[in-house]
Amino acid sequence: MVSPEYLLTLISFSCISLISLLGLNIILGYTGQPWLGHAAFFGVGAYTSAILTKVYGLSFWIAFPLSMFMASVIGLSVGFICLRLKEDFLAIATIALNFVIQGIISLTPQLGGALGIGGVPPPQILNYSITYSYYSIFALAISLLFLFVHAKLSISWVGLAWKAIAGDDLAANVMGIDVVRFRLIAIGIGCAYAGASGSLYVHFTRFIHPLDLGFEQSILMVAALVFGGCGTTAGPVAGAVFTTFFPELFRFAAEYRLLIYGALLVLLIKYLPQGLFGAGSGVRTFFERIVKGK
């Protein structure tokens, strides 16, 4: 029998993961940029929020947007340098950045060093702390807000331009799109999402450790997004639910988790290359039929 608290905890983690994946979807899914260090920006958000609230005593409501801002600024700095170079360089640079940020944090005592930072206070609303049981509702509300913004972006002019760039950046350029500017906008927004996710994470677990932003986490994020379906709104939702609940269902095989992920990804690429909810997938068509009542 699964306890309600356990289920609520999993829902919180799903919502937090969803926000990260939505951000990654904007950069990798919509704009088609090889972004392989997303966990670093999740970590920047988490550490920013932890330090601002624990060390400087700021409210979560101030730390939360600042975490998004900080992750966004670092993402934009990387993008600004790398986008002027070859596309492959962005993939390599984001991987390198992931290791660099993790290394800097591990070696900086002011950032908790290799031991991480504990005792991060929970968010408060009207002097009432939002703790484990209620945090799932809080995280769900915030993730729905981010999902709404993401869905709006996908039907906005910027979303259309991103999809055009992902399709063919030269043709997009010749059609009048300032490709570098639109890619930077995607990176800025996507990293802000990662920062928000990191902030929510650290105020939920009350602890952050350098391993939480390791390269392995970045790869798991990409795998989750590919599994769910890149470039769709439903894809990150499916990916977040999958990566949170799947390890719990198969806890008995925890040591083989990455092996199972790998095998699943291979099967997915063979039979559902667009992901579970990607364009043309049978699963997506099935759900669309249900929604349309056919």
């Binding site: 259309l160 999809k163 055009a164 399709g167 063919d168 030269l170 043709a171 997009a172 470039g231 364009a279």
Partner: peptide, 11 residues
């Protein structure tokens, strides 16, 4: 030809 293949003709 270099159309945006995943987009519709209208898009």
């Amino acid at each position: 030809t270099r159309p945006f293949k995943e987009l519709t003709c209208l898009e």
